[in-house]
Design a binder for these strands. Structure first.
Lengths: 328, 328
DNA sequence: TTGTAAGCGTTATCAC
DNA sequence: GTGATAACGCTTACAA
């Protein structure tokens, strides 16, 4: 617990000189600077963040705001934290599962006047309402995955369309003829990629409509168990909305005695941990979670520094990567 | 951005009176108090944490220190954060996967002089070294799962022994005769419960020795694939070290064409998300992750308030819960 | 090149 | 009941 005052006393100069010596903040005699630094090092000096924060009227806190938390978010946090720490910020985190409490939570976040805010997909309050409040308070923010936003939201997104597009082409190259999409037909990002690929292949889309609400595993499972009642021909490959739905679908196939991938190949989306622990292990379109966090942190840093918005806007879209395992 | 000064100006009294009115910190005229509070509310007053922190020489920050991060930790964080926030603290988080950087990380954590520290199982530096440094700095801490600690470490643990014990009895009650343990033979917590249950059942233990290092899925899988070479009789049930190993083992059984649970029942440990997404879904001994976080937060709060250590020590052990699904 | 002093917003002491 | 005023540790304009 060493302070500037003590270093000043120990080195026989004033606080001002010590501050200058440590901070490169002006001309100091070389020998003096060296001596001060040695003493500071020996005493284990660390600036008091509260004092600095008060004096500069500047926060060093970046708050991560999250609703539900999944291991997908963990990767983003792992990407965010080191980059921000390196830049002199510390990262705090607030959770709120209760939608009714989201409003008061975002208020308390703003009241803390953080240097920046990172928004992980949040259930309670919509992203639009949150961003509106942040903008009004002039707090820099970065959102992750703002597909559903109505207003302009600075965010790191992933190119789901392209990811699915590539997965479908992969399935086709593997000789799959009847490739279905399992998920809500109105998911414009993923479905867009599916349709684009099928159009290119001159094939007709096959939809297993499934709501993303509720238990995705059970939804996927039910879709598989209903396969026998399908009037049309059976598919020989399925691109699922996400890994959970894919795993549910696979479970249904097992139940029916159908082999994966021999009878039906399955591709998931996200590359959750569970995708690599199933049997067979799931081929899936991976989100580059950690990289998403890193890129988000870098954008947020630039916004916090007050840099001008680049001509293309702050938002970025990152590519996915197809992870091939046994299921397809 | 309202400050005491402005509230004082608006209400026609001094800063001191405003502070007293808002903080219950002394005698204030009822009407004055009411008026001040109204104005403060209208102006949206929020105390400046940096100033308060500086003045009181007290931090309001609790730092979560983590090495690798899994969804098991997510539950603990979800338990910790609301409790600490409610008590006026904010929760920040630091990660470090690199073992070589763990040393400097823990230094920077201590240098920040947080009000408290929560230790999630950390890879780099051992728990003993970290706790030693925290004790020396007189920073209150709580650890999660300090089984491997050599010194006395205040921690929230779970009763793995009892959890496995109950799982084995459950398997026996289901009619399983040859119940094996898959994992390192020297894992004293879980193996202890296994042995206790088998002794009670008058049966001989069967061990499939498997290292917890490396890829647990592959380790479990290899154990299953080696089953055919087992000289002794085949087991009809397996308690695995954890869910990942259990899922790997199950994958090996599928590969061999053996049905789960008909041929061999499997019980995991942890209740990761993946346990409920497999086929068949995994029966497992669940860690009460969120509750672990809540209890940890409560202990940490008491330590931070300077309460005396209770006669039994700070540490607590929480019970597990057997989640029965299709695999056993 | 170095030092003095003011001030960030809050809390606490002490006198009125 | 109320109000000056000092102090927490740091940064910085200004003076020496």
């Amino acid at each position: 617990m060493a302070y500037l005052k003590e270093i000043a006393a120990a080195s026989g100069c004033s606080i001002r000189t010590v501050a200058r010596a440590l901070a490169d903040g002006g001309p100091v005699d070389g020998a003096t600077r060296e001596k001060v630094r040695q003493i500071a090092g020996r005493l284990g000096y660390q600036p008091n963040l509260a004092a600095r924060s008060l004096r500069l009227s500047k926060s060093f806190e970046v708050i991560i705001v999250a609703g539900a938390m999944t291991e997908l978010h963990v990767g983003k946090i792992e990407g965010l934290e080191p980059v921000l720490r390196e830049a002199g910020y510390f990262v705090s985190i607030v959770f709120e599962r209760e939608p009714t409490k989201a409003e008061s939570l975002i208020h308390s976040v703003i009241d803390r006047r953080p240097a920046g805010v990172a928004l992980l997909p949040t259930l309670g309050l919509g992203i639009d309402a949150i961003v509106e409040r942040l903008d009004k308070s002039k707090i820099p923010y970065i959102a992750f995955d703002a597909r559903h936003a109505k207003r302009q939201v600075d965010a790191v997104n992933i190119d789901r369309q392209q990811g699915v597009y590539e997965a479908i082409l992969y399935l086709a190259a593997k000789g799959r003829k009847r490739i279905a999409f399992l998920g809500p037909r109105n998911d414009m990002t993923r479905v867009g990629g599916y349709q684009r690929a099928l159009a290119q292949l001159h094939r007709k889309p096959i939809f297993f409509d499934a709501s993303p609400q509720g238990d995705a595993y059970m939804t996927g499972r039910a879709a598989a168990l209903n396969l026998s009642q399908t009037k049309s021909q059976m598919p020989d490959a399925v691109q699922a909305l996400n890994d959970v739905m894919a795993l549910g679908f696979m479970s249904g196939l097992h139940q029916l005695g159908l082999n994966v991938p021999e009878s039906i190949a399955i591709v998931g989306f996200d590359d959750r941990l569970s995708a690599s622990l199933s049997w067979p292990r799931l081929t899936t379109v991976a989100q580059p979670s950690v990289e998403i966090g890193v890129v988000g942190a870098e954008i947020l840093l630039r916004k916090m520094r007050g840099e001008r918005m680049p001509s293309g806007g702050w938002s970025q879209s990152l590519p996915t990567r197809l992870i091939t395992r046994e299921s397809a």
